[in-house]
Design a protein around this nucleic acid. Structure first.
Lengths: 206, 206, 206, 206
DNA sequence: CATGAATGAGAGTTCATTCAT
DNA sequence: AATGAATGAACTCTCATTCAT
């Protein structure tokens, strides 16, 4: 019951932080929306700051397992791996855009160093894996001699650009406010297709 | 003198907002850092919110003029235009990454509708121009039949991904904290080169 | 204990508002005098404005019950009823002149519409009752054909004139500042006697 | 020109103080409404407080001359004098209800002692004259042995009660908000008639 | 284990006033 | 003589947090 309540608070917090930002969300708002007592946040997490850290750690597993699995797979070609990562990455982010937005929000703010560091650790791990695959492809001469770091920036950046603001996305897609790109399956397929085409064109020899 | 002071406050505000976020920055912090009286912010701008809007409008010209000029030029090919836009866009963002970060921060937060709307207007204008060029290239059959909106997402997203967090960028670049990517000319050239390659590979026929 | 604290704040507020006016009283003054935390006012009442409204409602019962009782009494003559109302009215106002002054202060200020309206409601109810009695007396031909509204203005106005300013009252009574008319029983009797005489002379036939 | 400007500011101040109270009126509001510079108030009057005092002194003459004249007149009977005072008093107050309300507002607030004192001086003078006439009438046995101070309270209080709040007056008169009692000649006649009847009934023998 | 009451700090904003010109 | 810019103090209100129960 207690664990459920903690999780419940964290999930509501993710929603609210994504909506209004960390600073813009008050503990009272959070307690009200989660239907718990105001004191519960400090009771469970010690402070609002540490609630945020708890959220980051709680979700830290992120793509960890899947990425390791893909990297280790010996039967797939490098380009197959990249494609699979694109699919998984898009799926993962679209499955919880709120959390993704919260993470990025924090990356934009240089204060709260400890959180910053924690979030970076997650990204570093993922980046390293992707980098390994690209370099392997380059070594095997199936990939062009590309800029591996900026290739990742392109991959992640493209997704982020569409994911970070629903409003921005709707402007891009020429849809009105009622369209929710995060749950629309056509949009998801379109995004995956575009990413594969871009990466293939840039990465694959001939 | 007066104009200078207003501008001074706006510049300090851009710095602080980029560092600590809009909500995270107090008017008192701002006044202290800008070395002006607390009341000056409200005296000049009416409110903290309207200070933000003033900043957005102050910087709104952004790439406006340049983009219009490029679009209207009849001597350049479409791919030359795209290349020029990449160069200008990278130069512009790198020249004031703080402001760029502030804009993105606000886009992540769905509250404060009026700001949101103002910021989106700026982006929409730029996006429209880029879209026109891509569609013209497709029509002339020098470009492949691509996804124009997501192409823009790739272009802008790649830059953002490197620009939004100095720390993140250093992780990508495998540099330590002392390296400032925003002022390093090699990094700039590298980013421009990468973007051109990606866009060319994806966009140009043959 | 909680109820006591709320009541305590309201009572201190009545004192201070009467002394310095609503606008002239700061929440900090109030908190200091009541020996509570500054935040308590907003915690209990939501805002300074709503504190005032709470006070008005808290005291709204005013003469409500008594007036209804007197009006409904079938054994008393109209003039007896008027006399009783005079006695009660004088007693009530003298028992809490501070509050009475606060109400009048707010009536003088046209801003803060909602308060205005709430206060007027209280007066209207009381006025209606008094009016009914006078009109009944006129109908029964024991009262002259008088101006019922202005009769009320005379009754209430006379009391107010003596009640609203201790200093003014002392000037009227040719007493020095140390004399407190509100607690002096002789003054009370004198006021009641005068009012009865005026009203009788004006109202009663023959 | 300067004197005009000072007077202009005072007149606008009277309006605003009457509308929103002394504390509720900001120097900026006042400057804006009077269409002068913010600094003018302090420039001309030294401070907001001293502006108030200047207003009181500026208007201090009040009924002075007329009252003295009436008192000194040897051809009129005491009751004729009283009637004339009623007429003049009602006329005077109705001619500038804003100022009258401002004075009363200040009497309700015990702070700002010096203003208090100044205002009281004005009233004292008027009260003294009225008192003399009543006592003369009592001495001549044309008046009953009344309570002279409270008689004045009745006279002034009745007028105040109708004058102080337009809203209250409308409730009394059963009119809606659009009715302005201060400029309606019928209301004025009605008030004078009522006051004479009350005072006659109470004061005059037989 | 959980809570409603209570708190001090700090938020944005407005104020009357002053000062350089 | 007159003003627009600028100020420091104080305003109401909200915040994350604590504490007695």
């Amino acid at each position: 019951m207690t664990v459920d309540k903690k999780e419940h608070i964290m999930n509501v917090a993710i929603e609210l932080f994504a909506e209004k930002g960390f600073e813009g969300t008050s503990v009272r708002d959070l307690a009200a929306r989660a239907d718990v007592n105001v004191a519960m946040v400090n009771y469970y997490f010690g402070s609002k700051d540490r609630l945020f850290e708890a959220i980051v750690e709680y979700k830290a597993s992120f793509m960890r397992g899947k990425l390791d699995e893909i990297e280790a797979d010996t039967k797939m070609s490098e380009i197959q791996k990249i494609d699979l990562i694109i699919e998984n990455y898009v799926a993962k982010i679209l499955s919880n855009p709120s959390f993704h937005r919260v993470l990025h929000q924090e990356l934009l703010v240089s204060e709260r160093e400890s959180m910053h560091t924690n979030i970076l650790k997650i990204f570093m791990r993922n980046i390293k894996t992707l980098r390994n695959i690209i370099e392997m492809g380059v070594k095997k001469k199936v990939f062009k001699k590309v800029d591996p770091e900026l290739t990742m920036a392109t991959l992640i950046g493209t997704i982020n650009q569409t994911m970070l603001s629903k409003a921005m996305c709707n402007v891009l897609m020429e849809k009105d406010g009622s369209f929710d790109p995060y749950t629309d399956p056509h949009f998801r397929q379109r995004l995956i297709k575009h990413l594969k085409q871009v990466i293939h064109a840039y990465l694959v020899k001939e």
